[in-house]
Design a protein around this nucleic acid. Structure first.
Length: 483
RNA sequence: GGCGGCAUAGCCAAGUGGUAAGGCAACGGAUUGCAAAUCCGUUAUUCCCCGGUUCGAAUCCGGGUGCCGCCUCCA
């Protein structure tokens, strides 16, 4: 079964084929760095990371590019005035460049904490102004764009496919009363490629004028082209990007290059919080720090955000994160059990016992992710593996095979399962031995006090016939037995 | 007003024509010095509602209700 993905452009599940064998050119719409990213933003970036991971496991070289929008485009295409980075800068009485620099750094820290593999390039809009101008000038020259004073607009009527991605038509957009009609635009749906405003702080000189800055959509077309070439295999983003952002990107890029822009357009559904839309007013635009402050790990958050299918709505509540934490602990535990079965400490007598079931679970896991990244289905396959381990139906060699799979495929794909064996500080190990001695002496008051101590240190114990197994509660890393 | 998506047990969630996966939580029992972990068992005659097609529908069609997204900055 080949990898199949849902393509927003065709509204169908399609076999995944790249332009160049073995290489995937992937562009992910990244953040506008004017504030701290919240868990909803991360759902989209985590989807991109999961896709990248699965493509790599499938043998592709993934050329992943995620843009950083550090030039605040206008709050509004109709030019209601302010740019959001500049608005934030004014609020904080800081230089807009300082705002974008600070939030870019914070964004990278958050991505790393979430276990996202770094993209090959994180191009900044501010560093690609010449590339944008090259495209804008080209579009004017080809007749797809027109100048209005010192502004430049894209003329959607010149691009018949405009609306194909989102299912809108230029005629319907015309009827939609929500786009402010600007006098200088030939059609209400025409969008800005370049704007001019002497009051802007982030501005550049160009042949269009002294005080210009790019429109919202051109940066992605220009940066994708610069770093990946005229054509892409995959372009991702949140569902809100479908229109107008991606629709406009297609119009710009394809008009400019004369070639199809991206083969596959993949979009993540919005994350809801408490069953509704996140909003600053409700105070539920949670950041990673909010998650930590509530006592949860970022690792558990990652799991919580990727365990649902990316095209299904996903709800977030603290209770749901609590549940996800439990599930993840069981996944960590799967590794511990397999390692034990592999060493022959616990398992079936015959080394090959369970080899067939292990093979089925592994095949199901792969088939699930090949099916448009069906993570929930893949997790069920992992749970099947766990049942085999718990029921001690795996021989040493079957367990070894399963363990290799979990570490090198499942964890590599999901990025949040603890597969490392933990290490213990000497004094903690001493406490465990002391508790063992107390239990042997039937001094249960002493042994229970020591166990409570260890819990406070984040160590949970499991008493078995062979000795005590332990693990770090948050990281899930463990070891033992200690006799 | 236009376009699109979703609705499966207390909760998360798979399943797109063949008779409801998996998980979390809960409860009862076993095990344990007590716990934890683990094991056994229980938890949707039914898939938002109403019609229709079919031998047969959660799955297809029509209508309705609710929620979400886009059309204006947003992942």
């Amino acid at each position: 079964m080949p990898f199949e993905v849902y393509n927003t452009l065709t509204r169908k599940l399609e076999p995944f084929r790249t332009l160049e064998p073995g290489i995937v050119r992937m562009y992910n719409c990244g953040p506008t760095v004017y504030g701290r990213a919240h868990i909803g933003n991360f759902r989209a970036y985590l989807f991109a990371d999961t896709l990248r991971r699965w493509l790599e496991i499938s043998g592709y070289e993934v050329r992943q590019v995620m843009n950083i929008t550090d030039v605040g485009h206008l709050l509004d295409d109709a030019d209601a005035g302010e740019d959001k980075i500049e608005a934030q800068a004014r609020k904080e009485q800081l230089d807009p460049w300082a705002i974008s620099r600070r939030h870019t750094e914070q964004f990278f820290r958050d991505l790393e904490d979430l276990g996202c593999l770094p993209a090959r390039v994180y191009p900044k809009a501010s560093e690609h102004i010449p590339e944008m101008l090259e495209m804008i000038e080209g579009l004017v020259a080809k007749g797809y764009a027109y100048r209005a004073g010192e502004d430049v607009y894209y003329e959607v009527a010149k691009f018949p496919r405009y609306g194909r991605l989102s299912g809108n038509s230029v005629a319907e957009l015309d009827a939609g009363a929500r786009i402010d009609v600007r006098e200088e635009k030939r059609h209400p749906a025409d969008f800005a490629l370049w704007k001019s405003d002497p009051h802007h702080l982030m501005k550049w000189k160009s042949r269009f004028g002294e005080h210009g800055f790019p429109g919202w959509h051109i940066e992605c077309s220009a940066m994708a082209r610069r770093h990946l070439g005229d054509r892409l295999d995959v372009h991702t983003g949140g569902e809100d990007n479908i229109f107008p952002h991606h629709e406009c990107e297609i119009a710009q890029s394809e008009a400019f290059t004369g070639q199809p822009f991206a083969t596959y357009w993949m979009h993540t559904k919005f994350l809801q919080v408490d069953g509704g839309k996140m909003s600053k007013r409700l105070g539920n635009c949670y950041s990673l720090d909010d998650v930590r402050a509530k006592g949860f790990t970022v690792r558990a958050l990652r799991f919580c955000l990727i365990r649902g299918h990316y095209r299904q709505p996903l709800n977030f509540t603290w209770d749901i994160l609590r549940e996800a934490t439990s599930v993840l602990e069981n996944l960590d535990d799967l590794v511990v059990r397999l390692r034990r079965a592999q060493s022959g400490a616990a398992g079936a007598a015959s080394a090959d016992a369970g080899i067939e079931e292990v093979g089925e679970a592994m095949a199901e896991f792969r088939a699930a992710l090949d099916d448009d990244l069906n993570v929930p289905r893949a997790l069920a396959a992992l749970m099947a593996l766990r049942a085999l381990a718990l029921e001690e139906r795996l021989g040493a060699s079957a367990a070894a095979q399963a363990l290799q799979f979990v570490v090198h495929v499942a964890q590599r794909a999901l990025g949040c399962i603890q597969v490392e064996e933990g290490s213990l500080a000497a004094e903690v190990e001493a406490k465990i031995r002391e508790r063992n001695a107390a239990r042997k002496a039937r001094d249960f008051a002493r042994s229970d006090a020591l166990r409570d101590d260890l819990v406070r240190l984040g160590i949970t114990l499991e008493d078995t016939k062979a000795g005590v197994l332990w693990k770090h509660k948050d990281s899930g890393a463990g070891g033992g037995p200690i006799a």
